[in-house]
C-alpha cells in the first residue's frame, strides 16, 4: 500500500538528530511495549507480515507523529481485536470482560531465551529454479496495490541489475493477508541513483533492495 511508512525519498521530515549515548529505552512503557508485542507475536495467530501491514495501515498523521513503540502498540491493539483476543471495550476499561480466544501458545519466562535464539526464519524451498541470474538487467513492476507490498514506491518501474540470488523466501504480499506463504526467489537488485532520482542524483550513489521474483521482469 502507498502508506505513510513508505518513506524513501520523501522531503521535509527534518534532521536526523541522533542522540548521544542514547539509552536502550526512554521510558518504562517502551520496555513493556516491546515485551508485550513479542509475547503476543508468540501466539502464532498472525505473521510478521500481517504485523507490518497493521502498522503501515495506521492513519498517516498518527503514523508520522508516533514513536515506533507507539506504532507497535497501536498496531498490536488492531491485531488483538481482529483475531478475537481482546475487545475495544476491554482496552477502554483496562480490564478483562470476557475470556476471548485461546492462543496456540503463551510465552512464559522460561521460553524466552529459546524463542529469541531461534527467531523466525522465513526462507522456504521453491521447486522451480530462479528465473533470473546474477548480472541480469531487470525492470521492477509498476503497481500500486492497496494491500501489503515490500516494493517501495521509489523502486517501482526502475531498471537495475541483479547482484545476487538471495535464496527463496515467504512472499509477504500474500502472507500479510492470510493467503499463504507462497515462497518465491528473492534477488538483490542494485540501481544507480540517477535511475531512481533522475536529475541532480548523486553520481557516486547506488541503492539496492531485496526484491521477490514477481516484482521483476527481464529488461
Amino acid at each position: 500500500m502507498n502508506g505513510p511508512h513508505d518513506l524513501g525519498g520523501q522531503h521535509g521530515m527534518g534532521p536526523i538528530a541522533p542522540e548521544r549515548n542514547e539509552p536502550i529505552f526512554h521510558a518504562e512503557w517502551e520496555k513493556r511495549a516491546l515485551g508485550i508485542t513479542l509475547s503476543c507475536g508468540a501466539f502464532g495467530a498472525w505473521t510478521l507480515d500481517e504485523s507490518r501491514h497493521a502498522r503501515e495501515s495506521l492513519a498517516p498523521a498518527t503514523y508520522l507523529s508516533a514513536s515506533y513503540y507507539e506504532i507497535w502498540t497501536r498496531a498490536l491493539e488492531t491485531l488483538l481485536k481482529r483475531h478475537g483476543f481482546v475487545t475495544q471495550a476491554e482496552l477502554d476499561a483496562g480490564h478483562m470482560l470476557d475470556k476471548g480466544r485461546e492462543p496456540k501458545r503463551v510465552l512464559t519466562a522460561d521460553m524466552v531465551a529459546g524463542v529469541l535464539a531461534k527467531g523466525g526464519p522465513c526462507d522456504r524451498p521453491v521447486e522451480a529454479p530462479p528465473r533470473i541470474a546474477a548480472g541480469d538487467s531487470v525492470r521492477t513492476k509498476n503497481f500500486n496495490p492497496e494491500s501489503h507490498t515490500r516494493l517501495p514506491r521509489y523502486a517501482r518501474a526502475r531498471t537495475g541489475m541483479v547482484e545476487a540470488v538471495q535464496g527463496s523466501f515467504v512472499f509477504p504480499d500474500d502472507n500479510a493477508h492470510g493467503k499463504g506463504e507462497n515462497p518465491q526467489w528473492l534477488y538483490m537488485v542494485v540501481f544507480d541513483a540517477g535511475e531512481i532520482w533522475g536529475e541532480g542524483a548523486d553520481p557516486t550513489l547506488t541503492v539496492s533492495i531485496d526484491a521477490w521474483e514477481s516484482y521483476l521482469e527481464h529488461a
Partner: peptide
C-alpha cells in the same frame, strides 16, 4: 502511552495471554 500500554498489559495478563515475567526476561535480554 503509559496508560495505553498499562491497560493492554493488564487485560492480557488477566486473560492469561501474557506472562509479565516473560516481558521482564525479554527486556533483560
Amino acid at each position: 502511552m503509559e496508560a495505553r500500554v498499562k491497560a493492554l498489559e493488564t487485560v492480557l495478563t488477566e486473560k492469561g495471554l501474557i506472562d509479565p515475567a516473560a516481558i521482564d526476561a525479554i527486556v533483560d535480554a
